[in-house]
Simulated scan of single mutants.
Amino acid sequence: MVSQWENFLQNLGEWHGSFTQLSPRGEVLQDTPSIISLEGLNDNKTVRLKLRRFSPNPSGVGEPEVSELVREYQGLGRDILFFENGAFSQGTIQLAPYSQCGAEFGFIYNYRRLRFVQLYNIDGNLSKLTLIREKQLDKNVPERPPLTVEDLLGEWEGEAVTIYPDYRHPDSYSTNLQLHLDGADHLVNKITFGSNGTVISSSARIDGSVLHFNESDSPVQVVLLPDGGSCTLPVKADFRKPIFFEVGWLVEPDLRFRMIRSYNDRGEWVSLTLVTERKVSH
C-alpha cells in the first residue's frame, strides 16, 4: 500500500485560487484571492507550505494586503488522511459538547483542486463555510459550472474506498446511487452499497440550491456549490449520535467524487471514505 506521505506528495505544486466565504445557503459573502505552494525539499522528505492571501486594502485604493503563512512538514498528524490520488480530509478527531468542531476536504483532478471547510460552534450550530477553488496556472483548465439538481439526476455506479485513522487495511466495495425527481420540488435518493447490499432511501425538498433532507431525526441539508461542488451539512451537530460530513465534486458530466468523514455515537472519528462514481443512465 502506498504510504500516507506519498499520497500527500500528490498535492505538490503552486496553486492559484481563492478562499470564498459562503452563507449556509451557499451564497458568496466574501472572496479572497490566494496562492498556495507546496514544495518538496530534501528529496521530498520535507514539504514547505507557503500560503499567501490577498485582501482588499481597507482604504479601497492601493495594493491589496497580503497575509502569509509558512509551515514545514516532515510528517502528518493523526487528524488527516490521504487517498492515493491526493484527495484528503483533515479535521476534528474527537467531537465533544461545548467545543468547536469541523473538517476540511480536498480533491485533485486535471490540474485543479477543490477544497472545502465546514466549522461548527460550541453549540453545535454551523458557523463557517469556506470553498477554496485552485488551479495550476500553466495548465489553464477552466472551472466547472455551479452544480445543479439536473446534473445529479440519473443512476451512478461507483467504487468506494474506506480508510481508517488506525491505518488498518482499507475496505473497498461497489456503490449504486439513483436520483430522480418526485414532482417539481422533491428529489428521491436511493443508495446501495457494501457486500451485503445495504440500501438507504431518502427524500429531499428542493429549495433553490439547497436540498433539505428532514425525514430522519438527524436532518441534513445538501448545498450545491460553484465549480461543481456540493456539501452535506448536519443541521445540528449532535455528538450523541453517529454523524458524518460529506463533500462532493462533479469533475465531468458523468464523473463525480464524494468524500465522507464519519464519527460514531461517542464522537470518535472512525473512517474516511472516497467514492468515485460514474453516471450510467440519465
Rank of each mutant, 00 (worst) to 15 (best):
V2W: 14
V2E: 07
Q4L: 04
Q4I: 06
E6Q: 14
L12K: 13
G17P: 03
P24F: 00
Q30N: 11
I35V: 10
G40F: 04
G40W: 08
D43L: 07
N44V: 06
K45V: 07
T46F: 11
V47P: 11
V47M: 04
V47A: 06
L49Q: 11
L49G: 11
L51E: 08
L51A: 07
F54L: 03
P58G: 01
S59E: 06
P64M: 07
P64C: 10
L69Q: 14
V70A: 10
Y73Q: 09
Y73K: 13
G75L: 12
F83T: 14
F83H: 09
G86P: 03
A87K: 06
F88P: 01
Q90F: 15
Q90W: 15
T92G: 08
Y109I: 15
R113K: 15
R113G: 06
F116Y: 12
F116D: 10
N121D: 12
N121G: 07
L126E: 04
L126H: 03
K128H: 07
K128S: 06
I132N: 01
R133M: 00
L137I: 07
L137D: 09
P142W: 03
P145T: 00
P145N: 00
P146T: 08
T148N: 06
V149T: 01
E150L: 09
E150C: 10
D151R: 01
L152H: 00
E155R: 08
E157P: 09
E159D: 09
P165L: 04
H169N: 07
S174G: 13
H180N: 15
H180M: 12
L181P: 08
L181R: 11
D182Q: 12
G183A: 04
V188R: 01
V188K: 00
K190T: 02
K190P: 00
I191L: 01
G194S: 02
S195I: 11
N196Q: 14
T198A: 09
R205K: 10
I206Y: 10
D207L: 05
L211P: 13
S218D: 13
V220A: 09
V220R: 14
Q221P: 03
Q221Y: 13
V222C: 04
V222Y: 10
V222H: 15
P226Y: 04
P226A: 07
T232Q: 04
P234N: 02
A237S: 11
F239T: 13
V251E: 12
P253E: 06
D254P: 14
D254H: 12
M259H: 08
D265F: 15
D265E: 10
R266C: 02
W269E: 02
V270G: 10
V270F: 14
V270Q: 15
S271K: 11
L274N: 03
V275D: 02
E277Q: 00
E277N: 00
V280R: 05
S281F: 07
